[in-house]
């Protein structure tokens, strides 16, 4: 009796362990099976490199969305990476205890704020701000980048902080012993030693920025054309799906799934490069 119970439960646990594998396979199969035939129908190059997205005229080019995603992500990194890394350095090496605790919980809370709340904040604060300072309609690459930069901060900060803390104390002490100040020792001995972990944090941040949907949709303007300046509206891969999924049918719907396939491949590439990188470091 106990033997059966032991074996049975072991089998059950084994089954549970397989669920995540099954989930990944199912996601791949269902996305690819609905997306690939549609992409083939339009033609891969026309799909990826076409500059016009006009479902009504059967034009399905997602280049504007790919470029849009890249612009917005790049902008977010420009803001998020320096501030994120410097804040992580502050947390790990500079903050006195009475500043550390509130700042750390602030970072945790930032990670927990729902993206609709970020998006709404962007809509009522950032959009008017950009409109009044720089002109234009306010919903732009710049606005989306600013908001995304804020949203990826917690990811970059917590991963970077962990890796800075993992650097052996002797590196820092060695720096001090050679006559460097606290700051120089941190920046020129500890930080270079932590760079692989920091890089991992940045890559995770890229993943978050590429995948963010609702917040971007609320502030980016969503025109399906390649933006001509930082003040013009932009549509990303993710928002393209949400915007049109509700009313699309047939080929149009399948092309949206095709968009998701492209997004999925992007994310897989980011993930893969991260795990390859981690393995090389080890």
């Amino acid at each position: 009796m106990t033997y059966i119970k032991e074996k049975g439960m072991k089998l059950l646990f084994f089954g549970a362990a397989l669920v995540s594998i099954a989930a990944v396979i199912l996601i791949c199969v269902f996305l690819l099976a609905s997306g690939i035939p549609a992409i083939r129908e339009v033609g891969l190059f026309k799909f990826l490199l076409g500059t016009r997205w006009k479902p009504a005229n059967n034009l399905y080019g997602i280049l504007p969305m790919i470029v849009g995603s890249l612009y917005v992500t790049g902008g977010a990194l420009l803001l998020g990476v320096p501030i994120g890394i410097l804040t992580a350095v502050f947390l790990a090496r500079f903050a006195p205890k009475n500043i550390y605790t509130p700042l750390k919980s602030a970072v945790n809370l930032m990670a927990g704020i729902p993206s609709v709340v970020y998006g709404f904040f962007g809509l009522v604060v950032l959009v008017p701000f950009i409109r009044e300072t720089f002109g234009g309609r306010g919903m732009s690459v710049l606005t989306a980048s600013l908001l995304l930069g804020l949203m990826i901060l917690p990811t970059i900060i917590s991963v970077s902080e962990t890796s800075i803390r993992a650097v052996p104390e002797s590196y820092y002490e060695g720096g001090l012993a050679l006559g460097a100040s606290h700051e120089k020792s941190v920046f020129f001995t500890v930080l270079p030693a932590a760079k692989s972990g920091i890089f991992a944090g940045v890559v995770l941040g890229i993943g978050r920025a590429v995948g963010e949907t609702m917040a971007v949709m609320m502030v980016a303007g969503n025109q399906a054309v390649i933006p001509s300046s930082v003040l013009s509206g932009v549509r990303t891969l993710t928002t393209n799906i949400v915007l049109e999924m509700g009313y699309s049918t047939d080929l149009h719907r399948e092309m949206l799934i095709g968009t998701a396939v492209v997004l999925f491949v992007f994310i897989l590439m980011i993930n893969l490069s991260l795990s390859l990188f981690k393995r090389r470091v080890k």
Partner: peptide
């Protein structure tokens, strides 16, 4: 954990 939520939604 890296898959964006919209892809989950679509799936």
């Amino acid at each position: 954990s890296g898959i964006p939520s919209i892809v989950y939604g679509l799936f």
